[in-house]
């Protein structure tokens, strides 16, 4: 089985030819028999072109330089990352399959709303460099000048502002927390549901909906077309103007972070192959901290911060706990 995969991979790389030849460094020949001695598969549970895919593809050559083996990206999109996460866990936990995904909020969502047959303990986060946040925005020319305008209108009539949002999302949890704190009935809101961050942002930028709540990083290319109103974070992010959630609800305002994206392995891999795990961990850490890599990723608007396994796992568990607290809201009918 193992043998067969490796030969197939080599075949593919041989035939894609130039592509592989240029990325596979001569270091491939070094260290026969020690991990890793063959290409590593990276499962991305989203289709090509999204943030995770771009991050994985941009980071792969950097990690490759550290590990001395080519990384082979496998896109396995669908069902809100459920298919990809399931597929990843089904692969052997030998360190030759790793996963690049938005683990938060998708792993908790898979478990809470889609009856996934895995648990959060099956994943071990190595690093989650990209920490997205919910941004409430309106179109650039809107008459809603600030979050106060929005709240004033909602207090007047909760259905008077159409709100673009993805169902079962971290953004919906954040919106509900805010509405409950403001004493506005969340059930009375005029929610307009979209199936994807891109369409939600386009709806905000085009004035199709009055406001939208969606991951803020993806708004960057549309910065000229929108007006940011409220950032669900305790620090200013990506230079967005407008209020912070802590300005509105106080310093201890509850909120969940948006997509937490990065790299993970099977938890069982950590236990069974501590030596290999250490090699992989060191490689990712070194690649993440390399100044050249940081500069290159930043230019592509991709995150690079090194938080490490401890902080990353902790962050994911926090999100999962908050999501569970608001479970009724995510599965509500």
């Amino acid at each position: 089985m193992t043998n067969r995969f490796s030969r197939r991979d080599m075949l593919r790389f041989a035939s894609v030819g130039a592509a592989a030849a240029t990325v596979a460094s001569p270091a491939i020949l070094r260290a026969q028999g020690s991990y890793p001695d063959r290409p590593i598969n990276v499962v991305v549970p989203f289709d090509t072109g999204g943030y995770n895919d771009r991050l994985a593809r941009a980071f792969a050559p950097m990690l490759q330089a550290e590990l001395g083996q080519p990384l082979n990206i496998i896109n396995r999109g669908g069902a809100g990352a459920l298919l990809g996460h399931t597929y990843f866990l089904q692969q052997p936990d030998d360190g030759y399959t790793i996963c690049a995904s938005s683990f938060g909020p998708y792993v908790p969502l898979n478990i809470l709303t889609q009856d996934a047959d895995f648990s959060i303990d099956d994943f071990h986060m190595i690093n989650l460099p990209s920490q997205d946040y919910t941004l409430m925005a309106t179109e650039a020319g809107s008459d809603l000048e600030s979050i106060d305008d929005v709240l004033a209108r909602l207090h007047d009539d909760p259905s008077s502002v159409s709100i673009g949002i993805q169902p079962a999302s971290a953004d919906l949890v954040n919106l509900t927390i805010l509405m409950e704190a403001e004493g506005i009935d969340p059930d009375a809101l005029a929610l307009v549901t979209y199936d994807g961050g891109g369409p939600t942002r386009n709806a905000a930028a085009g004035g199709v909906v009055d406001v939208a709540l969606v991951g803020g990083e993806g708004f960057l290319p549309l910065a000229d077309e929108i007006r940011p109103l409220l950032t669900f974070s305790d620090t200013r992010r990506d230079g967005w103007e407008g209020a912070l959630i802590t300005d509105v609800l106080g310093a201890d305002a509850p909120f969940v972070s948006g997509s937490q994206r990065g790299w993970a392995v099977h938890s069982s891999f950590v236990e069974q192959h501590p030596d290999r795990y250490q090699i992989l961990l060191d490689a990712i850490e070194t690649a993440s901290k390399n100044p050249d890599n940081i500069a290159s990723l930043e230019e592509q608007q991709l995150a690079t911060t090194w938080f490490g396994p401890e902080a990353s796992n902790e962050q994911l568990r926090q999100t999962a706990a908050l999501m569970e607290q608001y479970l009724d809201l995510l599965t509500d009918d």
Binding site: R4, F5, R8, R12, S15, I74, N75
Partner: peptide, 14 residues
């Protein structure tokens, strides 16, 4: 098998 194997980014059992 050779052709599709070279193109598609998924392993398939042989």
């Amino acid at each position: 098998i050779w052709g599709y194997g070279a193109i598609i980014p998924f392993p398939f059992p042989l």
